[in-house]
Amino acid sequence: MERTFSTSRTDSWWVETLVSASVFVLAIIYSIVRALEGKFFQWGPYLSPLYPFPIETAWISPAMFTMWVPAGFRITCYFCRRVYYRSVFADPPACMVREPKRNYKGESAFPYILLNLHRYFLFFAILFVPIHWFHAIKSFIWEGSFGMGLGSILILADSVFLTLYVLSCHSFRHLSGGRIDNYSQNNARYKIWKFVSSLNKNHGFFFWVSLISVIVADLYIRLLSSGTINEIRIF
């Protein structure tokens, strides 16, 4: 019972911890590298979802202007908190597994208490959703007519997953109607809350797929834009 990571569990508890730590850390490194790189965000009708505003500056990577929104939204997201507390901070590494000794304060003290600002990031994230859809639609317009490439599908998929991720947010669930107790007198709010709650059940899943889809779409556009690969045009 004494050592860090000791447990009576007989299953491979570390698999989930390790896999989520790897995906999470890789996603962060990739985004930082891309933000610093500051180019190859555009190709044909495609604009990378990592870079939804085509602002031109010479002195700072344009991605820096907007990246704080998805980054802040994710870092403060309740599900994401679970991911990094468990797999990055081993706090706990997995249920019923001993953790390193520490002076535990949970989210009751600085800096974690700031995570309560999640609702503000949610506000900006909601503003971003229509912008992503705008670029998703644009990715189907090739020199004025309707067309579709692999990139269009990747960008569309990313918009769908991002929308589901944002709509299933716990803070959104609270705002949509979770704050209310007497639903029989607020039927409309009750219905919205039920709908958001049904999405909220899969919030963790939407977190992962939207994280992966944004990277896949960006990577694809980066490879096109740098001339490494050729577009797979469907029609």
């Binding site: 507390y85 249920c95 989210e107 716990h170 803070s171 979770g178």
Partner: peptide
């Protein structure tokens, strides 16, 4: 605020109460 929403309670509950998602997070909000 000591709860860091890591959801072990939810995994354990034999009554399948979604303790973290339905009780703790809404209270935190």
């Amino acid at each position: 605020m000591y709860c860091n929403i890591t959801k072990c309670c939810t995994e354990a509950c034999p009554e399948e109460i979604h303790i973290t998602d339905n009780a703790i997070i809404p209270l935190k909000e």
